[in-house]
Design a protein around this nucleic acid. Structure first.
Lengths: 179, 179
DNA sequence: ATGTCCATGTAATCCGTTACATGATTAT
DNA sequence: ATAATCATGTAACGGATTACATGGACAT
């Protein structure tokens, strides 16, 4: 289980509230590991029990109080030892590919439309990645931490580009089906 | 949830036992949707309750009896209407990318090794895909059903190739870190 | 008025993984 | 002998998703 570690990674950057973390899992680190706010809150409670983070409430006027979580030394050690364990291969689960695989039994116009939707999705992500790359990484002197993020981002860009080509090709091939 | 539908897709090809299905989810359709034998058995029980498959026991001597599942007309209709619903974007969860993202806090030699392991994994899959493509699809006249499988396989090949390049590039970039 | 953002969580259900369990046949 | 294959499942646990729940601030 790597949600715990992904949260710890975020907290190495700065102390954050559950809300901040939830937003982060919807962007930056969320490009590599998705999690909802419910998951984040539940996992934070467990991390606190295990002593890997400590939490303190900050008074706010006009807004609900923030509960801010900080990574502990034990938390940093946990991260290091997690990094030495083998990483699981992400398990493949893609309905669209199953539909293509089952071509004879599906509604082909509906499938084409789903492929277009998927294409738009990946184009939007690619665009977002490019902007982040230009803004934060291109032509800059990078710290080790930034170099890691840069490598991950570069891999993301490559994979998005390729998925776009791949869906475009699928649409072309679908156009030739039956002819 | 698409495990139910993935099972139905398999059963459009021919009636199968839970065991046969489990093996199928470890190969062919498993390239696009992974499932363990436990999941398959549990899901089959649900499909039977919903009337989407019917099951009949076949006597065998010397081996346990086979319980063979057949897709019903209701099952085929369920497949068609599923095919018209939007497909979810697979949710990204890759520990290796999280580790790269957290480069400053990880053990870099251990990470390099994990990248190598991942590379080998994708090379093996690419190899398997190529063999299936040559054996069943290249230079043949394909039915619609085969064309669908061919498109899915072509997408799989493209994505594996790209992942391989991507991990190779990551290793090169990792080699330059700190320098 | 309506909606979005900030900020926190609980509850129920479902899905996925790991482990347990059995037992004969066939190949090395 | 040992391991793999065929063939079926149950049980426990943990992770993920969906829905429910509250409530003020601020913008349109």
């Amino acid at each position: 289980m790597a949600l715990a570690e992904a949260i710890l990674v975020c907290l190495t950057d700065r102390p954050m509230s559950g809300y901040d973390l939830a937003k982060t899992f919807d962007a930056s680190i969320g490009f590599f590991w998705r999690a909802s706010h419910q998951q984040v809150y539940r996992e934070l409670a467990k991390l606190r029990e295990r002593g890997l983070v400590k939490s303190s409430e900050i008074e706010q006027s006009g807004k609900p109080n923030r509960i801010v979580h900080t990574i502990t030394t034990a938390g940093k050690n946990a991260l290091k030892s997690w990094s030495q364990k083998p990483s699981r291969v992400p398990s493949v689960k893609d309905e669209l590919l199953v539909k293509l695989y089952a071509l004879e039994h599906v509604d082909i116009p509906a499938l084409r439309e789903q492929l277009e939707v998927r294409l738009d999705h990946h184009r939007a992500i690619l665009n977002a990645y490019h902007k982040i790359k230009e803004r934060f990484y291109d032509g800059k002197d990078l710290t080790i931490s930034e170099q890691g993020k840069h490598i991950a981002l570069t891999m993301g860009i490559r994979s998005e580009k390729e998925m776009i080509k791949s869906y475009e090709e699928a649409l072309v091939m679908l156009g030739q089906v039956g002819s």
